[in-house]
């Protein structure tokens, strides 16, 4: 017993722990977004459709921009809105660091590999600019996306998608998938944690692989079983293949105004 415990404590991070950590991270993230999105704040009070369209306009502006100033403007506007909506600094910092690390590694060689005017140490001016563009764009767009999901309950976001002509069936698929993601995460965590605690020491790689694959296999069998039972539950309540949904109330004048200003503003900024 104590030997098993010893092994557990001293085991280096294996695939089980990493997978568990990632699954737990998704749960955490959705939970904190849910808390924040239902609290009070500037963006929390805005119609989700406006937020969705607004975020779309900002992301498109950032994606289309040929000027670093405009990218900076999108970034600053978004961060200001984030603070007015009580987004935690730590959360934004985590996002930025992970984005910069990922894209930074990709952008770095561009400093040297892009042909153009040399600046010294093998760096070219074009390379420097290209790397800056990439990072600025990624930073701006990912911040917009993150602020949107942190300030909008996800089911409101789902309903907002329907307002923008996404087919009902797509919205229903996304909604149902989202709902069952959490069930599968829970099931997987239960399965892996059960195995984790049962394992005394580190298994040979081959067996660890077999274990991971068996987990996936069990999950898949469950998925099929679950889907046929859900099918019955849907039928039992009158489902005949077409999904029907409630209509949304029309947008208010104020909402249209916000969107028009945003759209015109970004149009002008891009044109210049």
């Amino acid at each position: 017993m104590s030997e098993g415990l010893h092994h557990l404590v001293h085991r280096r991070k294996g695939f089980l722990d990493r997978t568990l950590a990632e699954l737990a991270h998704v749960l955490d993230r959705s939970f904190s977004a849910e808390l924040l999105s239902t609290s009070s704040g500037l963006l929390q009070g805005i119609d989700p459709r406006v937020k969705l369209a607004g975020a779309g306009i900002l992301i498109l502006t950032a994606a289309a921009s040929r000027s670093l100033w405009l990218l900076a403007a999108v970034f600053v506007v978004t961060v200001t809105l984030a603070f007015a909506s009580h987004l935690k600094v730590r959360e934004l910092l985590t996002l930025w660091i992970s984005v910069l690390l990922f894209s930074g590694v990709i952008a770095l060689p561009a400093l040297f590999l892009t042909p153009g005017q040399p600046l010294g140490w093998g760096v070219t001016k074009q390379g420097l600019q290209a790397a800056t563009f990439l990072l600025a764009r990624v930073l701006a767009t990912s911040t917009v996306g993150s602020v949107l999901v942190s300030t909008t309950p996800w089911n409101h976001l789902l309903r907002a998608m329907r307002a923008f002509r996404l087919p009902v069936v797509a919205v229903v698929l996304i909604g149902m998938t989202y709902r069952y993601i959490f069930l599968f995460i829970q099931t997987t965590m239960d399965m892996l944690e059960g195995r984790q605690s049962r394992l005394a020491g580190e298994l040979p790689a081959k067996e660890r692989r077999a274990m991971a694959l068996a987990t996936v296999g069990v999950l898949m069998s469950k998925a099929f079983e679950l889907s046929s039972d859900i099918h019955l539950a849907m039928q039992s309540r009158g489902y005949r293949g077409e999904v029907h949904a409630l209509d949304e109330s029309p947008l208010r004048v104020r909402d249209w105004a916000i969107l028009s200003i945003l759209a015109v503003g970004s149009g002008v900024a891009l044109w210049r």
């Binding site: 149902m176 709902r179 679950l226 019955l232 039992s236 005949r240």
Partner: peptide, 23 residues
């Protein structure tokens, strides 16, 4: 249904309760 994960297939409680009447 016996299993709530089968019975509750909608994203939210509201959608769940509205499902039958809508269909």
């Amino acid at each position: 249904f016996q299993n709530p994960d089968v019975q509750l297939f909608c994203p939210t409680v509201f959608d769940e309760v509205a499902f039958g009447p809508l269909q």
